[in-house]
């Protein structure tokens, strides 16, 4: 697989950590080991100028292992370049380093990924559910969460944030 200038630059700097690259439909993509996420992200931000975390989300590839994938879309306002950074996350250890120290904008994106997929972001200052209520059980965007499961909010006040 041939890489682009950008993906090759990341691969050259982190030969051990880059698991693969592709540019399907013109979207430059780098897949890295999740342990290397803070180092690679810091390199991308400080050296290559990706100053904006445009999006951060996850995908559940059940029954594949590693099951989850963290997907970040980075944008450089100075150079007008985009890059997708992905890292596989195994179901047994569904945690990954938080990107909030680098991009404060990651805060709510990571809260949503925790809420929807149950990915634990180590070092996140305030990892609460974002869209669902605190007493909600499970993570709805996981593939094994049934689409027809009803979970009315309990009215015993459990998990309310105001008391």
């Amino acid at each position: 697989m041939t890489g682009t200038y950008l993906t090759d630059a990341v691969k050259e700097r982190f030969p051990e950590d880059v698991l693969g690259t592709h540019a399907f439909r013109g979207d430059d993509t780098v897949v890295i080991r999740k342990e290397a996420l803070p180092a690679v992200a810091a390199f991308l931000k400080d050296q290559l100028g990706f100053d904006m975390l445009m999006d951060l989300t996850a995908v559940d590839y059940l029954p594949r292992e590693p099951r989850f994938e963290l997907v970040c879309h980075l944008y450089s306002t100075g150079r007008n370049v985009r890059l997708r950074l992905k890292c596989p996350v195994p179901a047994g250890d569904a945690s990954v380093a938080s990107l909030t120290p680098l991009w404060p904008g990651a805060g709510w994106f990571e809260r949503e990924a925790w809420d929807m997929f149950g990915l634990d972001f180590k070092g996140h200052p305030d990892l609460r559910r974002l869209l669902m209520y605190e007493s909600f059980e499970g993570h709805p965007l996981r593939k094994d969460y049934p689409i027809d499961r009803h979970q009315p909010r309990r009215d015993d006040g459990a998990g309310r944030t105001d008391r």
């Binding site: 149950g118 305030d126 990892l127 605190e134 059980e137």
Partner: peptide, 12 residues
């Protein structure tokens, strides 16, 4: 797993 809800203020 559910976390203890964080709050941005405490009435006490």
């Amino acid at each position: 797993m559910n976390r203890a809800p964080a709050k941005n203020w405490d009435i006490e």
